[in-house]
Nucleic acid binder design. Structure first.
Lengths: 219, 219
DNA sequence: GTGTATATCTCGGGG
DNA sequence: CCCCGAGGTATACAC
C-alpha cells in the first residue's frame, strides 16, 4: 500500500472523458496495482481510479496508468507532500451476515410465511433466463415462483416477470403465479407488480431470524 | 485527511452484520467524517466503511463510529504503525463528459435527429413507473416516447416497454410509439425492440456535439 | 469469456 | 426527506 499526498491534476479517458483541476489529493496504489485518487470527502468512492490489471508508468511529474481495454488515467504530479509505502500483506477476509442469500435461506425454511400451506419444491429453480429464487407448491396444487430481494424495486419485478413467462411455457408446471418478497417494496415496484398480476409482500428479517432461532431451541 | 496504518479487527452492524479478523490495514478518515478501512487490494472499495454524517468516538484501542440510522462501525485498534493528517482543502470537483445526461440534452435540443419534424413536448415526462427521457410529437400528430442510453441493452428496451404500456392507457396521448436511442444498440436489444414494435437508432455523440457547437457559432 | 444478479452499492436530481 | 435512475458502476458466480 503506497500512499502519496500530492498536488496534482488528473485526466481519465475511456468509457467517458473526465478531468480534475489541480488540487491536493491522496493517491493510493494498492499491492494489486489498482490506483485511486481521493479527495478529502465523499464516502468511499475515489474521484478517479483504475482497477487492476493495469500498468503504471511513473515519470518525472507524470503518472500514466493504462489498462488492456485502452483506458488511460493520467496524473500530472505538481508537488509531492508525502510518499510512503506499507506492506500490509493479504487480508484474512470479510465475513458477512444478512445479505439476500440469508434472507432466501430463511424464507426457504419458513415458506408458509409467504402463504399458508406453501411447500418448498426447490431453491434456485433453473429456467432458460436464470434461476428462480424459490419454487413452491400451494395447497390447491398450483405452483408459485418467489423472487426475493432486500429492497424490492422495479428491476426485481421485471426479473420475476421473465421467469413467469418461461415457467408458464412448461405444461407440467402451468399455471405458475408469482410472489415478490422483500424487506421493503418500493411504490413503483408495487404499481408494476399489481399491473402484472404479481402479489407482493414485505417481510421482517429480524422477525424471520427470530423464528428460526426459536425453532432451533426446540431441538 | 487522516491516514492511519494499524493492526485492527473491525465489526459492522447495520444493514448487515460483518466482521474482519485482525490484520494490518489502512484507516482513512476524511474531512467530512467518513471512515473507510482498506486492505492492500480489491480495487477501490474498502472492506468496511461508514459514510457521513456520523460520529467518531476514539478511545484507547477502540474507535466507534455511529450514524443517525443506528449503524455502527467498531474498530479494535491493536497497534498503530503510523498516524498522519493532511489538510487537503475542498476539491474543485470533477468534470465529466459523455454521460447519458449530455446525450439526453443534445437530443432534446436536436430531436429532429431522431425523426424528421419531431418536436419536443417534455424531458423527463412522468409516468407511474418512472419518467420517460423524452416525449415528442411527430408531424402526423402521434406521440413518441424516446428512451436514451449510452449503451443500449435489453433492460433499456424493457424500461421503454413499461413506459409505453402506461402511456398508451392515456386517451389524450394514445397512440404512443417508442424509439430506443443509444450510441450503440446491442444485438439482443435490437431483437427485443423489433419484437415489441419499437424502433431503435444509433447516434454519434461526437457528431451531435459537433452540430451543437456549430449552431452556437452562428450566434 | 460472456452474461446475470447483487451491493452496507454511491451519487446526484427532483418532488 | 424519500424516491428514483445512472454508473467508467464493481464484484461474484454460473454457463
Amino acid at each position: 500500500m503506497r500512499l502519496v499526498i500530492a498536488r496534482c491534476s488528473v485526466d481519465y479517458s475511456g468509457r467517458l472523458a473526465a478531468h480534475l483541476p489541480p488540487a491536493n489529493r491522496l493517491l493510493m496504489v494498492k499491492a494489486d496495482g489498482c490506483v485511486a485518487v481521493h479527495a478529502d470527502g465523499g464516502a468511499y468512492k475515489p474521484l478517479m481510479w483504475m482497477t487492476a490489471p493495469n500498468r503504471l508508468v511513473e515519470r518525472e511529474g507524470s503518472w500514466v496508468v493504462t489498462n488492456p481495454k485502452g483506458e488511460t488515467l493520467t496524473i500530472a504530479v505538481e508537488e509531492i507532500l508525502s510518499d510512503t509505502s506499507w506492506p500490509l500483506g493479504a487480508d484474512p477476509g470479510l465475513e458477512k451476515d444478512g445479505v439476500e442469500a440469508h434472507l432466501q435461506a430463511l424464507l426457504a425454511a419458513n415458506c408458509e410465511r409467504i402463504a399458508a400451506g406453501l411447500r418448498l419444491v426447490r431453491r434456485e429453480y433453473p429456467t432458460d433466463v436464470g434461476p428462480v429464487d424459490l419454487l413452491c407448491r400451494a395447497p390447491d396444487g398450483t405452483t408459485l415462483a418467489v423472487e426475493i430481494k432486500r429492497r424490492g424495486e422495479i428491476d426485481g419485478v421485471e426479473q420475476l416477470s421473465r421467469y413467469l413467462d418461461f415457467l408458464n411455457r412448461d405444461p407440467m408446471l402451468r399455471p405458475v403465479r408469482g410472489v415478490f418478497v422483500a424487506q421493503q417494496v418500493r411504490p413503483q415496484a408495487r404499481v408494476l407488480a399489481a399491473d402484472r398480476g404479481i402479489r407482493w409482500l414485505e417481510v421482517d428479517y429480524d422477525e424471520l431470524r427470530g423464528i428460526e432461532s426459536s425453532e432451533q431451541r426446540l431441538f
